[in-house]
């Protein structure tokens, strides 16, 4: 059951690959179509953030279970400059680049559990859960 896969995140086309692998993982976890779409979209947002703002990193996809329900667990990390003020970054519409500022806050709304760790100069680590 617990299958783990580590995908690189170095270029734009890696985001497409991550999306496809997350979709497969969501199918294995027997998530509904809407939940599948939500976790894939969230992964896409976070992966793009890690690539654009964090200079790339990696994505760990894990087929697992949570409280007896099958689940998809994602950990996306980068070694970039990190986020100075996480609370500010989580607000809709806030962006340090030229995006829409919906990446972090939007992704959080799409998943069942969301955790973010970051400090200036230490990179960023985002953890996403979606279960059945």
């Amino acid at each position: 059951m617990a299958k783990k896969e580590i995908l690189p995140l170095k270029q734009e086309t890696d985001i497409v690959l991550i999306r496809q692998r997350v979709r497969q993982s969501a199918e294995v976890a027997k998530l509904g179509l809407v939940s599948q779409t939500k976790i894939v979209t969230a992964a896409s947002e976070i992966a793009r953030n890690a690539l654009i703002y964090g200079g790339g990193g990696e994505c760990v996809i894990e087929d697992t279970a949570r409280n007896g329900r099958s689940a998809v667990h994602l950990v996306i990390t980068d070694q970039g400059k990190g986020i100075e003020d996480i609370n500010k970054a989580m607000v809709d519409g806030y962006t340090s680049g030229n995006g829409l500022g919906l990446g972090l806050s939007g992704a959080k709304r799409l998943v069942d559990e969301f955790a973010i760790e970051s400090a200036p100069g230490k990179g960023t680590r985002v953890e996403l859960w979606k279960w059945r």
């Binding site: 809407v34 779409t37 979209t41």
Partner: peptide, 14 residues
């Protein structure tokens, strides 16, 4: 646009 995509977009805030 597929229903699942539309629901997700709305949730995302777009």
């Amino acid at each position: 646009m597929q229903p699942a995509v539309a629901i997700t977009l709305v949730e995302l805030g777009l």
